[in-house]
Write a protein that binds this DNA or RNA. Structure first.
Lengths: 245, 245
DNA sequence: GCCAGCATGGCACATCGTGCCATTCGGTCG
DNA sequence: CGACCGAATGGCACGATGTGCCATGCTGGC
Protein backbone atom coordinates (compact mmCIF):
# COMPACT_ATOMS: atom_id res chain seq x y z
CA UNK A 1 0.00 0.00 0.00
CA UNK A 2 2.86 2.32 0.77
CA UNK A 3 5.38 2.88 -1.94
CA UNK A 4 8.66 3.90 -0.41
CA UNK A 5 8.89 3.13 3.27
CA UNK A 6 9.65 -0.15 4.98
CA UNK A 7 8.53 1.19 8.38
CA UNK A 8 5.43 3.23 7.60
CA UNK A 9 3.97 5.95 9.80
CA UNK A 10 1.88 4.67 12.65
CA UNK A 11 4.49 2.25 13.94
CA UNK A 12 6.11 2.59 17.33
CA UNK A 13 9.01 4.45 15.84
CA UNK A 14 12.17 3.21 17.42
CA UNK A 15 14.91 5.71 16.54
CA UNK A 16 16.84 2.65 15.48
CA UNK A 17 20.29 2.40 16.90
CA UNK A 18 20.72 4.04 20.30
CA UNK A 19 19.89 1.07 22.50
CA UNK A 20 21.30 1.33 26.02
CA UNK A 21 24.68 2.48 24.76
CA UNK A 22 25.25 6.17 24.08
CA UNK A 23 25.05 7.14 20.44
CA UNK A 24 28.72 8.03 20.23
CA UNK A 25 30.24 5.63 17.67
CA UNK A 26 27.33 4.28 15.63
CA UNK A 27 28.86 3.62 12.22
CA UNK A 28 26.28 1.00 11.36
CA UNK A 29 23.85 3.68 10.17
CA UNK A 30 24.19 4.62 6.53
CA UNK A 31 24.33 8.31 5.81
CA UNK A 32 20.90 8.20 4.26
CA UNK A 33 19.44 6.58 7.34
CA UNK A 34 21.11 9.15 9.55
CA UNK A 35 19.56 11.95 7.54
CA UNK A 36 16.15 10.31 7.77
CA UNK A 37 16.40 9.99 11.54
CA UNK A 38 17.61 13.56 11.72
CA UNK A 39 14.70 14.77 9.62
CA UNK A 40 12.23 12.90 11.79
CA UNK A 41 13.67 14.43 14.94
CA UNK A 42 13.61 17.85 13.33
CA UNK A 43 9.95 17.50 12.41
CA UNK A 44 9.10 16.35 15.92
CA UNK A 45 10.94 19.30 17.43
CA UNK A 46 9.25 21.76 15.10
CA UNK A 47 5.82 20.27 15.78
CA UNK A 48 6.26 20.24 19.55
CA UNK A 49 7.45 23.84 19.58
CA UNK A 50 4.61 25.07 17.39
CA UNK A 51 2.00 23.12 19.34
CA UNK A 52 3.28 24.42 22.65
CA UNK A 53 3.38 27.99 21.37
CA UNK A 54 0.12 28.41 19.45
CA UNK A 55 -1.88 25.35 20.43
CA UNK A 56 -2.29 22.39 18.13
CA UNK A 57 -5.52 23.63 16.56
CA UNK A 58 -3.84 26.75 15.20
CA UNK A 59 -1.00 24.83 13.55
CA UNK A 60 -1.20 23.35 10.06
CA UNK A 61 0.83 20.50 8.66
CA UNK A 62 2.23 22.91 6.12
CA UNK A 63 3.44 25.16 8.92
CA UNK A 64 5.30 22.31 10.56
CA UNK A 65 6.81 21.32 7.24
CA UNK A 66 7.98 24.86 6.60
CA UNK A 67 9.42 25.14 10.11
CA UNK A 68 11.25 21.85 9.60
CA UNK A 69 12.51 22.90 6.17
CA UNK A 70 10.79 20.22 4.12
CA UNK A 71 7.89 20.05 1.71
CA UNK A 72 4.36 19.24 2.73
CA UNK A 73 4.48 16.05 0.71
CA UNK A 74 7.57 14.84 2.52
CA UNK A 75 5.99 15.58 5.87
CA UNK A 76 3.18 13.15 5.11
CA UNK A 77 5.72 10.50 4.23
CA UNK A 78 7.04 10.67 7.77
CA UNK A 79 3.79 11.06 9.69
CA UNK A 80 0.20 10.27 8.91
CA UNK A 81 -1.20 13.35 10.64
CA UNK A 82 0.21 16.54 12.06
CA UNK A 83 -0.39 15.36 15.60
CA UNK A 84 1.54 12.14 15.03
CA UNK A 85 4.62 14.25 14.46
CA UNK A 86 5.20 14.50 18.20
CA UNK A 87 4.95 10.76 18.77
CA UNK A 88 8.74 10.21 18.74
CA UNK A 89 9.02 12.48 21.77
CA UNK A 90 6.45 10.41 23.59
CA UNK A 91 7.85 7.02 22.62
CA UNK A 92 11.47 7.80 23.34
CA UNK A 93 11.17 6.87 26.99
CA UNK A 94 9.03 3.87 26.16
CA UNK A 95 11.76 2.35 24.04
CA UNK A 96 14.27 2.61 26.86
CA UNK A 97 11.76 1.13 29.26
CA UNK A 98 11.23 -1.93 27.08
CA UNK A 99 14.92 -2.37 26.35
CA UNK A 100 15.91 -2.31 30.00
CA UNK A 101 13.03 -4.56 30.92
CA UNK A 102 13.87 -7.14 28.28
CA UNK A 103 17.43 -7.32 29.59
CA UNK A 104 16.37 -7.92 33.20
CA UNK A 105 18.39 -10.61 35.01
CA UNK A 106 16.58 -13.91 35.34
CA UNK A 107 16.30 -14.15 39.11
CA UNK A 108 14.41 -10.88 39.52
CA UNK A 109 10.68 -11.14 40.16
CA UNK A 110 8.67 -9.58 37.36
CA UNK A 111 7.34 -6.73 39.44
CA UNK A 112 10.83 -5.96 40.65
CA UNK A 113 12.14 -6.00 37.09
CA UNK A 114 9.38 -3.62 36.06
CA UNK A 115 10.24 -1.22 38.84
CA UNK A 116 13.91 -1.13 37.99
CA UNK A 117 13.21 -0.60 34.32
CA UNK A 118 10.81 2.22 35.13
CA UNK A 119 13.41 3.88 37.31
CA UNK A 120 16.03 3.71 34.61
CA UNK A 121 13.69 4.89 31.89
CA UNK A 122 12.56 7.95 33.83
CA UNK A 123 15.98 8.91 35.17
CA UNK A 124 17.86 10.92 32.55
CA UNK A 125 21.34 9.52 32.01
CA UNK A 126 22.91 12.48 30.27
CA UNK A 127 22.34 16.09 29.36
CA UNK A 128 20.43 15.36 26.16
CA UNK A 129 18.08 12.98 27.92
CA UNK A 130 17.34 15.56 30.60
CA UNK A 131 16.49 18.14 27.97
CA UNK A 132 14.29 15.69 26.09
CA UNK A 133 12.49 14.88 29.33
CA UNK A 134 11.89 18.55 29.94
CA UNK A 135 10.59 19.14 26.43
CA UNK A 136 8.32 16.13 26.76
CA UNK A 137 6.91 17.57 29.97
CA UNK A 138 5.98 20.72 28.15
CA UNK A 139 4.30 18.68 25.44
CA UNK A 140 2.39 16.61 28.00
CA UNK A 141 0.96 19.79 29.46
CA UNK A 142 -0.43 20.75 26.06
CA UNK A 143 -2.07 17.37 25.48
CA UNK A 144 -5.23 17.64 27.64
CA UNK A 145 -6.35 20.75 25.79
CA UNK A 146 -6.34 19.31 22.30
CA UNK A 147 -8.37 16.35 20.99
CA UNK A 148 -5.82 15.51 18.30
CA UNK A 149 -2.95 15.38 20.75
CA UNK A 150 -5.02 13.31 23.14
CA UNK A 151 -5.56 10.83 20.32
CA UNK A 152 -1.82 10.46 19.83
CA UNK A 153 -1.30 10.03 23.54
CA UNK A 154 -3.94 7.30 23.63
CA UNK A 155 -2.37 5.56 20.67
CA UNK A 156 1.07 5.63 22.21
CA UNK A 157 -0.39 4.22 25.39
CA UNK A 158 -2.15 1.40 23.57
CA UNK A 159 0.91 0.63 21.45
CA UNK A 160 3.06 0.47 24.54
CA UNK A 161 0.74 -2.04 26.12
CA UNK A 162 0.91 -4.22 23.03
CA UNK A 163 4.69 -3.96 22.97
CA UNK A 164 4.89 -4.92 26.63
CA UNK A 165 3.12 -8.23 26.09
CA UNK A 166 5.87 -10.05 24.14
CA UNK A 167 8.55 -8.68 26.45
CA UNK A 168 6.73 -9.87 29.55
CA UNK A 169 5.99 -13.18 27.87
CA UNK A 170 9.70 -13.64 27.30
CA UNK A 171 10.41 -12.94 30.94
CA UNK A 172 7.63 -15.05 32.42
CA UNK A 173 7.45 -18.78 32.84
CA UNK A 174 6.37 -20.44 29.59
CA UNK A 175 3.21 -21.82 31.19
CA UNK A 176 2.03 -18.41 32.37
CA UNK A 177 -1.56 -17.56 31.48
CA UNK A 178 -1.57 -15.19 28.47
CA UNK A 179 -4.50 -13.35 30.03
CA UNK A 180 -2.42 -12.70 33.15
CA UNK A 181 0.34 -11.30 30.98
CA UNK A 182 -2.05 -8.95 29.24
CA UNK A 183 -3.44 -7.76 32.54
CA UNK A 184 0.02 -7.21 33.94
CA UNK A 185 1.01 -5.27 30.84
CA UNK A 186 -2.08 -3.09 31.13
CA UNK A 187 -1.56 -2.49 34.84
CA UNK A 188 2.11 -1.58 34.53
CA UNK A 189 1.42 0.59 31.53
CA UNK A 190 -1.42 2.42 33.25
CA UNK A 191 0.70 3.01 36.32
CA UNK A 192 3.41 4.46 34.13
CA UNK A 193 0.95 6.68 32.28
CA UNK A 194 -0.77 8.02 35.37
CA UNK A 195 2.55 8.69 37.04
CA UNK A 196 3.82 10.61 34.03
CA UNK A 197 0.57 12.54 33.67
CA UNK A 198 0.59 13.48 37.33
CA UNK A 199 4.23 14.49 37.13
CA UNK A 200 3.60 16.69 34.11
CA UNK A 201 0.47 18.30 35.52
CA UNK A 202 1.90 19.01 38.95
CA UNK A 203 3.64 22.34 39.28
CA UNK A 204 6.08 20.96 41.80
CA UNK A 205 8.72 19.05 39.89
CA UNK A 206 8.54 15.75 41.73
CA UNK A 207 10.81 12.88 40.85
CA UNK A 208 8.96 11.09 38.03
CA UNK A 209 10.84 7.81 38.57
CA UNK A 210 9.87 7.53 42.22
CA UNK A 211 6.30 8.52 41.48
CA UNK A 212 6.10 5.83 38.82
CA UNK A 213 7.53 3.18 41.11
CA UNK A 214 4.99 4.14 43.73
CA UNK A 215 2.13 3.73 41.25
CA UNK A 216 3.54 0.47 39.97
CA UNK A 217 3.73 -1.05 43.44
CA UNK A 218 0.13 -0.21 44.18
CA UNK A 219 -1.13 -1.79 41.01
CA UNK A 220 1.03 -4.84 40.46
CA UNK A 221 1.59 -6.12 43.98
CA UNK A 222 -0.67 -9.11 43.50
CA UNK A 223 0.05 -9.73 39.85
CA UNK A 224 3.37 -11.45 40.21
CA UNK A 225 3.26 -13.83 37.30
CA UNK A 226 5.80 -16.64 37.88
CA UNK A 227 9.20 -15.82 36.43
CA UNK A 228 10.92 -17.93 33.78
CA UNK A 229 13.28 -20.52 35.36
CA UNK A 230 16.26 -19.84 33.06
CA UNK A 231 17.85 -16.44 32.70
CA UNK A 232 17.39 -16.75 28.94
CA UNK A 233 14.71 -14.37 27.78
CA UNK A 234 13.17 -16.10 24.82
CA UNK A 235 13.47 -13.82 21.83
CA UNK A 236 13.74 -10.65 23.88
CA UNK A 237 15.46 -8.83 21.05
CA UNK A 238 12.79 -10.09 18.71
CA UNK A 239 9.88 -9.22 20.90
CA UNK A 240 10.75 -5.68 21.79
CA UNK A 241 10.96 -3.74 18.52
CA UNK A 242 7.84 -5.30 17.01
CA UNK A 243 4.67 -3.38 17.90
CA UNK A 244 3.50 -2.31 14.48
CA UNK A 245 0.01 -1.44 15.64
CA UNK B 1 -17.40 27.75 19.70
CA UNK B 2 -20.22 25.57 18.51
CA UNK B 3 -23.35 27.34 17.41
CA UNK B 4 -26.31 25.09 17.99
CA UNK B 5 -25.55 22.23 20.34
CA UNK B 6 -25.34 22.28 24.10
CA UNK B 7 -23.73 18.81 24.19
CA UNK B 8 -21.26 18.85 21.31
CA UNK B 9 -19.77 15.82 19.62
CA UNK B 10 -16.93 14.23 21.52
CA UNK B 11 -18.79 13.90 24.78
CA UNK B 12 -19.59 10.60 26.40
CA UNK B 13 -22.99 10.55 24.83
CA UNK B 14 -25.48 9.28 27.33
CA UNK B 15 -28.65 8.36 25.43
CA UNK B 16 -30.36 10.35 28.15
CA UNK B 17 -33.33 8.66 29.65
CA UNK B 18 -33.10 4.86 29.69
CA UNK B 19 -31.41 4.41 33.04
CA UNK B 20 -32.13 1.04 34.56
CA UNK B 21 -35.81 1.19 33.72
CA UNK B 22 -37.08 0.12 30.31
CA UNK B 23 -37.82 2.98 27.94
CA UNK B 24 -41.55 2.33 27.98
CA UNK B 25 -43.15 5.44 29.53
CA UNK B 26 -40.61 8.25 29.20
CA UNK B 27 -42.77 11.32 28.66
CA UNK B 28 -40.08 13.65 30.00
CA UNK B 29 -38.42 13.77 26.58
CA UNK B 30 -39.74 16.42 24.26
CA UNK B 31 -40.58 15.28 20.79
CA UNK B 32 -37.64 17.16 19.36
CA UNK B 33 -35.26 15.47 21.74
CA UNK B 34 -36.73 12.10 20.88
CA UNK B 35 -36.11 12.71 17.21
CA UNK B 36 -32.53 13.75 17.89
CA UNK B 37 -31.83 10.60 19.90
CA UNK B 38 -33.49 8.57 17.18
CA UNK B 39 -31.37 10.20 14.50
CA UNK B 40 -28.20 9.56 16.49
CA UNK B 41 -29.07 5.89 16.89
CA UNK B 42 -29.91 5.65 13.21
CA UNK B 43 -26.54 7.12 12.24
CA UNK B 44 -24.73 4.75 14.59
CA UNK B 45 -26.56 1.78 13.15
CA UNK B 46 -25.84 2.83 9.58
CA UNK B 47 -22.17 3.43 10.35
CA UNK B 48 -21.72 0.12 12.16
CA UNK B 49 -23.37 -1.79 9.34
CA UNK B 50 -21.32 -0.10 6.63
CA UNK B 51 -18.09 -0.50 8.57
CA UNK B 52 -18.73 -4.17 9.21
CA UNK B 53 -19.64 -4.80 5.60
CA UNK B 54 -17.01 -2.89 3.59
CA UNK B 55 -14.44 -1.99 6.21
CA UNK B 56 -14.18 1.48 7.66
CA UNK B 57 -11.58 2.67 5.14
CA UNK B 58 -13.97 2.11 2.22
CA UNK B 59 -16.79 4.08 3.81
CA UNK B 60 -17.18 7.85 3.46
CA UNK B 61 -19.03 10.16 5.78
CA UNK B 62 -21.34 10.98 2.91
CA UNK B 63 -22.18 7.30 2.51
CA UNK B 64 -23.17 7.03 6.15
CA UNK B 65 -25.26 10.17 5.89
CA UNK B 66 -27.05 8.85 2.81
CA UNK B 67 -27.67 5.48 4.49
CA UNK B 68 -29.05 7.28 7.54
CA UNK B 69 -31.23 9.55 5.42
CA UNK B 70 -29.68 12.85 6.44
CA UNK B 71 -27.44 15.41 4.81
CA UNK B 72 -23.67 15.41 5.12
CA UNK B 73 -23.80 18.69 7.00
CA UNK B 74 -26.17 17.28 9.58
CA UNK B 75 -23.98 14.24 10.05
CA UNK B 76 -21.11 16.46 11.15
CA UNK B 77 -23.39 18.16 13.63
CA UNK B 78 -23.84 14.83 15.38
CA UNK B 79 -20.32 13.42 15.13
CA UNK B 80 -16.92 14.98 14.63
CA UNK B 81 -15.63 12.18 12.38
CA UNK B 82 -17.12 9.23 10.59
CA UNK B 83 -15.54 6.81 13.05
CA UNK B 84 -17.06 8.59 16.03
CA UNK B 85 -20.45 7.62 14.69
CA UNK B 86 -20.17 4.19 16.29
CA UNK B 87 -19.25 5.54 19.71
CA UNK B 88 -22.80 5.31 21.06
CA UNK B 89 -22.70 1.55 20.53
CA UNK B 90 -19.50 1.35 22.53
CA UNK B 91 -20.56 3.64 25.35
CA UNK B 92 -23.99 2.13 25.88
CA UNK B 93 -22.69 -0.53 28.25
CA UNK B 94 -20.40 1.95 29.94
CA UNK B 95 -23.29 4.13 30.94
CA UNK B 96 -25.07 1.21 32.59
CA UNK B 97 -21.86 0.23 34.34
CA UNK B 98 -21.45 3.68 35.87
CA UNK B 99 -25.11 4.00 36.80
CA UNK B 100 -25.19 0.69 38.63
CA UNK B 101 -21.87 1.42 40.29
CA UNK B 102 -22.95 4.83 41.52
CA UNK B 103 -26.01 3.27 43.12
CA UNK B 104 -24.04 0.62 45.02
CA UNK B 105 -25.14 0.09 48.63
CA UNK B 106 -22.85 1.71 51.18
CA UNK B 107 -21.65 -1.38 53.01
CA UNK B 108 -20.22 -3.09 49.93
CA UNK B 109 -16.42 -2.98 49.53
CA UNK B 110 -15.42 -1.04 46.45
CA UNK B 111 -14.04 -4.04 44.60
CA UNK B 112 -17.22 -5.95 45.34
CA UNK B 113 -19.33 -3.05 44.08
CA UNK B 114 -17.26 -2.93 40.90
CA UNK B 115 -17.77 -6.65 40.31
CA UNK B 116 -21.50 -6.47 40.74
CA UNK B 117 -21.78 -3.48 38.47
CA UNK B 118 -19.69 -5.21 35.82
CA UNK B 119 -21.90 -8.27 36.02
CA UNK B 120 -25.06 -6.24 35.58
CA UNK B 121 -23.62 -4.13 32.78
CA UNK B 122 -22.53 -7.15 30.74
CA UNK B 123 -25.60 -9.27 31.36
CA UNK B 124 -28.35 -8.26 28.92
CA UNK B 125 -31.62 -7.61 30.73
CA UNK B 126 -33.97 -7.80 27.80
CA UNK B 127 -34.17 -8.71 24.14
CA UNK B 128 -33.03 -5.33 22.86
CA UNK B 129 -29.99 -5.33 25.13
CA UNK B 130 -28.99 -8.78 23.93
CA UNK B 131 -29.19 -7.66 20.32
CA UNK B 132 -27.18 -4.52 21.05
CA UNK B 133 -24.55 -6.65 22.75
CA UNK B 134 -24.36 -8.88 19.71
CA UNK B 135 -24.05 -5.96 17.32
CA UNK B 136 -21.35 -4.44 19.51
CA UNK B 137 -19.44 -7.72 19.38
CA UNK B 138 -19.43 -7.57 15.62
CA UNK B 139 -18.20 -4.01 15.74
CA UNK B 140 -15.42 -4.91 18.20
CA UNK B 141 -14.17 -7.53 15.78
CA UNK B 142 -13.78 -4.88 13.08
CA UNK B 143 -11.86 -2.49 15.32
CA UNK B 144 -8.36 -4.04 15.29
CA UNK B 145 -8.19 -3.82 11.52
CA UNK B 146 -8.81 -0.11 11.19
CA UNK B 147 -6.76 2.75 12.66
CA UNK B 148 -9.70 5.12 12.81
CA UNK B 149 -11.87 2.69 14.72
CA UNK B 150 -9.00 1.91 17.07
CA UNK B 151 -8.80 5.63 17.80
CA UNK B 152 -12.45 5.72 18.80
CA UNK B 153 -12.00 2.65 20.97
CA UNK B 154 -9.06 4.29 22.72
CA UNK B 155 -11.01 7.47 23.26
CA UNK B 156 -13.97 5.64 24.72
CA UNK B 157 -11.60 3.78 27.01
CA UNK B 158 -9.94 6.99 28.20
CA UNK B 159 -13.27 8.74 28.64
CA UNK B 160 -14.58 5.86 30.69
CA UNK B 161 -11.61 6.06 33.01
CA UNK B 162 -12.21 9.76 33.52
CA UNK B 163 -15.88 9.15 34.18
CA UNK B 164 -15.05 6.44 36.71
CA UNK B 165 -13.01 8.77 38.88
CA UNK B 166 -15.85 10.95 40.23
CA UNK B 167 -18.07 7.91 40.74
CA UNK B 168 -15.39 6.10 42.73
CA UNK B 169 -14.61 9.26 44.64
CA UNK B 170 -18.24 9.45 45.65
CA UNK B 171 -18.14 5.86 46.87
CA UNK B 172 -14.81 6.03 48.68
CA UNK B 173 -14.02 7.54 52.05
CA UNK B 174 -13.54 11.30 51.75
CA UNK B 175 -9.92 11.05 52.88
CA UNK B 176 -8.98 8.52 50.19
CA UNK B 177 -5.87 9.40 48.19
CA UNK B 178 -6.93 10.81 44.79
CA UNK B 179 -4.01 9.00 43.22
CA UNK B 180 -5.34 5.70 44.56
CA UNK B 181 -8.70 6.49 43.04
CA UNK B 182 -7.18 7.18 39.67
CA UNK B 183 -5.22 3.95 39.78
CA UNK B 184 -8.28 1.99 40.79
CA UNK B 185 -10.25 3.55 37.96
CA UNK B 186 -7.53 2.69 35.47
CA UNK B 187 -7.22 -0.87 36.75
CA UNK B 188 -10.94 -1.57 36.71
CA UNK B 189 -11.33 0.04 33.32
CA UNK B 190 -8.45 -1.94 31.84
CA UNK B 191 -9.83 -5.16 33.24
CA UNK B 192 -13.16 -4.37 31.65
CA UNK B 193 -11.57 -3.52 28.32
CA UNK B 194 -9.36 -6.59 28.15
CA UNK B 195 -12.25 -8.82 29.11
CA UNK B 196 -14.46 -7.36 26.42
CA UNK B 197 -11.72 -7.53 23.81
CA UNK B 198 -10.99 -11.15 24.67
CA UNK B 199 -14.66 -12.00 24.57
CA UNK B 200 -15.12 -10.40 21.17
CA UNK B 201 -12.00 -11.93 19.67
CA UNK B 202 -12.65 -15.43 20.95
CA UNK B 203 -14.73 -17.61 18.65
CA UNK B 204 -16.24 -19.45 21.59
CA UNK B 205 -18.97 -17.24 22.99
CA UNK B 206 -17.87 -17.21 26.61
CA UNK B 207 -19.85 -15.35 29.24
CA UNK B 208 -18.52 -11.77 29.06
CA UNK B 209 -19.70 -10.91 32.57
CA UNK B 210 -17.85 -13.77 34.24
CA UNK B 211 -14.74 -13.10 32.18
CA UNK B 212 -14.80 -9.47 33.24
CA UNK B 213 -15.24 -10.34 36.89
CA UNK B 214 -12.30 -12.70 36.64
CA UNK B 215 -10.10 -9.97 35.16
CA UNK B 216 -11.29 -7.46 37.73
CA UNK B 217 -10.41 -9.73 40.64
CA UNK B 218 -6.90 -10.26 39.39
CA UNK B 219 -6.24 -6.57 39.02
CA UNK B 220 -8.02 -4.94 41.92
CA UNK B 221 -7.49 -7.40 44.74
CA UNK B 222 -4.98 -5.19 46.52
CA UNK B 223 -6.52 -1.86 45.59
CA UNK B 224 -9.34 -1.84 48.08
CA UNK B 225 -9.64 1.85 48.76
CA UNK B 226 -11.52 2.39 52.05
CA UNK B 227 -15.24 2.73 51.55
CA UNK B 228 -17.23 5.78 52.56
CA UNK B 229 -18.73 5.33 56.06
CA UNK B 230 -22.23 6.53 55.21
CA UNK B 231 -24.38 4.99 52.53
CA UNK B 232 -24.84 8.43 51.01
CA UNK B 233 -22.89 8.64 47.78
CA UNK B 234 -21.87 12.26 47.53
CA UNK B 235 -23.23 13.65 44.30
CA UNK B 236 -23.55 10.30 42.61
CA UNK B 237 -26.12 11.61 40.17
CA UNK B 238 -23.91 14.56 39.50
CA UNK B 239 -20.74 12.60 39.05
CA UNK B 240 -21.92 9.98 36.66
CA UNK B 241 -23.18 11.79 33.56
CA UNK B 242 -20.40 14.35 33.48
CA UNK B 243 -17.33 13.18 31.52
CA UNK B 244 -17.16 15.72 28.76
CA UNK B 245 -13.66 14.77 27.68
C1' DG C 1 32.59 6.98 -13.55
C1' DC C 2 28.12 4.50 -14.22
C1' DC C 3 23.87 2.87 -12.66
C1' DA C 4 20.17 1.22 -9.63
C1' DG C 5 17.55 2.60 -5.69
C1' DC C 6 15.59 5.69 -2.74
C1' DA C 7 14.23 10.16 -0.75
C1' DT C 8 12.33 14.37 -2.11
C1' DG C 9 9.23 17.90 -4.26
C1' DG C 10 5.48 19.38 -7.10
C1' DC C 11 0.92 18.62 -8.80
C1' DA C 12 -3.71 16.94 -8.80
C1' DC C 13 -7.60 15.24 -6.53
C1' DA C 14 -10.85 13.12 -3.28
C1' DT C 15 -12.28 13.61 1.29
C1' DC C 16 -12.69 15.96 5.60
C1' DG C 17 -14.54 19.34 8.67
C1' DT C 18 -16.59 23.89 9.51
C1' DG C 19 -18.59 28.70 8.97
C1' DC C 20 -22.50 31.01 7.07
C1' DC C 21 -27.19 31.60 5.64
C1' DA C 22 -31.82 30.36 4.23
C1' DT C 23 -35.62 27.26 5.24
C1' DT C 24 -38.58 24.45 7.96
C1' DC C 25 -40.68 22.66 11.94
C1' DG C 26 -41.81 22.09 16.86
C1' DG C 27 -43.18 24.53 21.18
C1' DT C 28 -45.17 28.52 23.36
C1' DC C 29 -47.55 32.69 24.23
C1' DG C 30 -51.09 36.03 23.29
C1' DC D 1 -56.19 29.69 16.39
C1' DG D 2 -52.56 32.48 14.60
C1' DA D 3 -48.05 34.48 15.33
C1' DC D 4 -43.59 34.44 16.99
C1' DC D 5 -39.08 32.30 18.61
C1' DG D 6 -35.71 29.03 18.83
C1' DA D 7 -33.72 24.95 17.24
C1' DA D 8 -32.68 21.49 13.70
C1' DT D 9 -31.76 20.83 9.00
C1' DG D 10 -29.75 21.36 4.30
C1' DG D 11 -27.04 23.65 0.79
C1' DC D 12 -22.92 26.13 -0.44
C1' DA D 13 -18.22 27.45 -0.18
C1' DC D 14 -13.69 27.07 1.38
C1' DG D 15 -9.46 25.89 3.90
C1' DA D 16 -7.17 21.78 5.49
C1' DT D 17 -6.14 16.92 5.19
C1' DG D 18 -4.07 12.92 3.21
C1' DT D 19 -2.59 10.18 -0.91
C1' DG D 20 -1.38 8.69 -5.83
C1' DC D 21 1.64 9.73 -9.57
C1' DC D 22 5.68 11.30 -11.90
C1' DA D 23 9.96 13.83 -12.45
C1' DT D 24 14.33 15.00 -10.27
C1' DG D 25 18.47 14.68 -7.55
C1' DC D 26 21.37 12.43 -4.46
C1' DT D 27 23.50 8.10 -2.15
C1' DG D 28 25.78 3.86 -2.23
C1' DG D 29 27.61 -0.11 -4.70
C1' DC D 30 29.82 -1.97 -8.97
Amino acid sequence: MLAHYAAPPGALTYPAGMSAAPQSPSPRLSLTERRKAETEREIARAAADLFSARGAAAVTAEGIAREAGISLRTFYRYFRTKEEAVAPLLTGGVRRWLDVLAAAPGQLPLTEALERAVRQALTPQDEAAAEALHRTRGLLRAIPGDPGLRTVWHRVHATTEEALVPVLTGLARPDADPLDIRLLAAAANSAMRIAVESWAADDADRNPAELAVQCLRKLTANLDVPRAPSGRTTGADDGAPAGTL
